[in-house]
Amino acid sequence: MQPFVYNALPSRVIFGSGTIVQLADEIKALGASRALVLTTKHQQRDGERLCEQLGSLAVGLYANATMHTPVDVTNDALEYVARTRADCVVALGGGSTIGLGKAIALHTDLPQVVIPTTYAGSEATPIIGQTENGLKTTQRTLKVLPEVVLYDVDLTLTLPPEITVTSGLNAIAHAVEALYSKDANPLISQLAEQGIASLASALPRIQKNPEDLEARSDALFGAWACGVCLGAVGMSIHHKLCHTLGGTFNLPHAETHSIVLPHATAYNSAAAPDAMARICRALGGVSDAAAGLYDLAVSLGAPTQLKDIGLREQDLAQAVEIACSSPYWNPRPIEADGIKQLLANAFLGRRP
C-alpha cells in the first residue's frame, strides 16, 4: 500500500425512504427555527408543500434557484434571507437549488439542510460554482458544505427519465475524475468504483421501470458516493470543460456532463491506466473505459452531441481558449490541440 492522505468531510447523511418526515427534527437539531426553503420555479409547488409540512418552522420560500448559480440571483436571494431573518436554508431539488443554498451559506454562514431530488451529487461537496459576466468560477471551502443531507428515495420516483439519465451520468463523471485526481487515495478510489457501478447498474433498470424502488435506491446511493468522491479530491479537465461550456455558453449542466465525459476520459486514457481499469470493471468488464461510457449514454438515450444542446461550431475556439487559460490539474498536460480535438469529437458525438 502506497502512502496517502485522506481528508474526511464533516456532514450528517440520512438515507432511506420516507425520511422527509425527519426534516423538522433536523432543523431543530441545528438550533434553527426559521427555515427558508429553496427551489427552482419548476419545483415551486413542492417547496410550498414542504413549507406546509414545516408549519411555523418555515419563514418563506425562495423559488428562483437558477442553473449555474448566477451571482445576481444569489444577491436577490440574500436580500430575501435578510427580510425573512432566516436562520437556516433548506434546499429541495437538484444542483441549481443546492448551488443557491451553498452561495447563501458562503455569504452568511447559515446552516444548510439539503434534500436532493436528482443525482447531481453537489450536496456531498464543499465546492461551489458561480457564474458572473459569462464566466463560471469555482471555489472549495467548508463554508458551503451542507451540515445535513437528507436522502429520501421516494422523492426520486417521479424524476423524469431524461433527467434521471443525465443527472446519473453527471454523477458518474464525479467519480471518474476522482479516480485520476492528484489527490486520489485508496478509500476514495474504492468508493468511486462502487458509485460508478451502482449507477451503471441502476440507470437501465430505472429506464425500464421508473418506479423501481430498489433501482432508485441504488442510483441515489451511487450519486452520494460519487459526490463524496468529488468533494474529497480535486477536479480535472472534464469539470473544467463543463464549467466553461455551461458558464460561458449557458449549456444545460447535466447534459453537458453526459456528452463531455467519454471524450474527457479518452483524453486522459493513456495517462491514467489504473483509473481506466477501475472504470472498465465498474461498467461490467468493458474493454475500453471511454467507449464504455459512451455506449452507456447511447443505450440510455442520453444526448451525445454538443451541437444538439445549444453549442455553435463557431463557439468551439473560444471554449478551447477559456479551458486552456487557467486549467485544473490533469494527469495529461492540457494542450490546445488536444482540447480542440476533444471538443470537436464531443460537438459531433463521435464514439471514442
Results as ranks from 00 to 15, higher is better:
Q2L: 13
L9I: 05
I14V: 15
I14G: 04
T19N: 08
A24T: 00
D25Q: 13
E26I: 05
I27C: 10
A32P: 06
S33N: 12
R34K: 14
L36F: 04
L38S: 09
T39K: 04
Q44S: 12
R49N: 14
R49M: 11
R49I: 05
L50E: 10
C51N: 08
L54C: 09
L54I: 07
G55S: 07
G55E: 06
L57V: 00
Y62G: 03
A63I: 08
N64T: 14
A65P: 01
T66P: 07
M67Q: 15
P70M: 10
P70N: 13
D72T: 14
T74N: 01
A77Q: 12
L78T: 04
E79M: 11
E79K: 12
A82P: 02
R85E: 15
D87P: 03
D87A: 07
C88Y: 07
V90K: 05
A91Q: 02
G94E: 11
G95F: 00
S96E: 09
L100H: 15
L100V: 13
P111K: 08
I115L: 12
T117E: 13
T117P: 10
A120E: 13
T125K: 14
P126I: 04
G129I: 08
E132S: 14
L135R: 15
L135A: 14
R140K: 15
T141K: 06
T141C: 12
Y151I: 07
V153F: 07
P160C: 09
P161E: 12
P161L: 15
E162N: 11
G168L: 04
N170M: 08
N170E: 08
H174G: 06
A175Q: 06
A178C: 06
K182W: 01
D183K: 12
D183V: 03
P186Q: 05
P186L: 08
S189A: 11
A192Y: 00
E193T: 11
E193Y: 02
G195H: 00
I196L: 02
A197E: 08
A197N: 05
A197C: 06
L203T: 13
P210T: 06
D212K: 01
A215Q: 13
G222Y: 08
A223E: 11
W224C: 12
V233I: 09
H238T: 01
K240T: 02
C242E: 11
L245F: 04
F249R: 08
N250E: 13
L251R: 00
P252D: 15
H253V: 06
H253C: 01
H253T: 02
H257L: 13
S258R: 04
S258H: 04
I259W: 06
I259L: 08
P262T: 01
A264I: 06
T265N: 00
S269N: 10
S269G: 07
P273K: 02
A277K: 07
I279M: 01
I279N: 02
V286I: 09
A289S: 01
A291H: 00
A302D: 10
T304I: 14
Q305K: 15
D308F: 02
G310M: 10
E313Q: 14
Y328H: 14
N330E: 07
N330H: 03
D337C: 13
K340N: 14
L343D: 07
N345A: 11
G349C: 10
